[in-house]
């Protein structure tokens, strides 16, 4: 299935802003992050089609997943 991945902030460094991937059915948000070598400890907000998603959420054909890093400084 085709999935569009959008990366934000420092996740773009050495990767990309937006890229389409052909992934196997039932791939989860966590598996997309792992495929991109983004550790779960780095992950902040995860959106699927612009809505808040859990890491375990499976993706569907045509979904857009957006990954934002955890930001905690002040």
């Amino acid at each position: 299935m085709k999935i569009l991945v959008k990366l934000f902030a420092n996740f773009r460094q050495g990767r990309f802003k937006v890229q389409e991937f052909e992934l196997s059915v039932t791939t989860t948000c966590a598996e997309v992050a792992a495929m991109l070598k983004i550790a779960e400890a780095e992950l902040g907000v995860v959106l699927v089609n612009g809505r808040h998603a859990q890491l375990a959420q499976p993706l569907r054909e045509g979904d857009t997943i957006s990954l934002f890093p955890l930001v905690g400084g002040g």
């Binding site: 780095e42 902040g44 907000v45 808040h52 859990q54 890093p69 955890l70 930001v71 905690g72 400084g73």
Partner: peptide, 24 residues
């Protein structure tokens, strides 16, 4: 909960990147 629900680690990107004058 939604901003930090996937992760409640004590720190984020600031640990590796620090902070400059303009972002705060």
């Amino acid at each position: 909960d939604r901003l930090y629900g996937n992760n409640d680690n004590g720190k984020g990107v600031e640990v590796t990147m620090g902070n400059p004058s303009f972002t705060p």
